[in-house]
């Protein structure tokens, strides 16, 4: 199956819940979906042969007041990657875990929880991973958010960028 064939199947099944999509080359689909269908969409992907998670994360769009969550899944059967994205409100960042569908996203979700402050319901192992254990979120904030105060970390001799 090629990416363009697969996008037709998705459009047929989910209709206008597919907000936009892009096909890049013959190995990539980037698709934006409505946040109400995430779980159904994910289990449909799993049934269609998309079995290996390769990336997961979130982007902080501070101007639009949303977090864009993205998951990248490769299919060992069709040999291409689908990157699906959806928006959640920035003032109440809360998603449901997809660990029960793709076990391999566990560490990625844990990292997203830690570095972007997105609550992940149902995640089995939410513990700090990369930051120091005594990291003070109230004072220092979440490092990958756009309102993170970088000025605290500028060296005394300045920053040339």
């Amino acid at each position: 199956m090629s990416p363009s064939e697969f996008i037709n199947i998705l459009k047929e099944r989910f209709g206008d819940k597919i907000l936009s999509y892009k096909i890049q080359g013959d190995k990539r689909i980037i698709v934006k979906i409505d946040s109400s269908i995430v779980e159904g969409f994910a289990s449909f992907l799993k049934e269609s042969g998309f079995d290996m998670p390769i990336t997961m994360g979130a982007t902080d769009f501070i101007k639009n007041k949303v977090f864009e969550i993205f998951y990248g899944i490769w299919s060992s059967q069709h040999d291409f990657v689908i990157l699906f994205k959806y928006d959640i409100p920035r003032d109440n960042p809360r998603i449901k875990t997809l660990v029960n569908i793709w076990s391999g996203v566990q560490k990625f979700e844990r990292e997203t929880w830690e570095l972007l402050g997105i609550n992940i319901d149902g995640h089995p192992n939410l513990k700090p991973l990369l930051l120091p254990e005594d990291w003070n979120y109230e004072e220092e904030g979440y490092p990958l958010r756009k309102d993170f105060n970088l000025k605290r970390y500028i060296a005394p001799w300045g920053d040339e960028s």
Binding site: I30, G72, V81
Partner: peptide, 20 residues
Amino acid sequence: EEEVLTRVESARGEINFYVY
């Protein structure tokens, strides 16, 4: 382009970059 996902085979295995 606005965004891209590239995959490369590093010595330890696949590394991928999502760049927006």
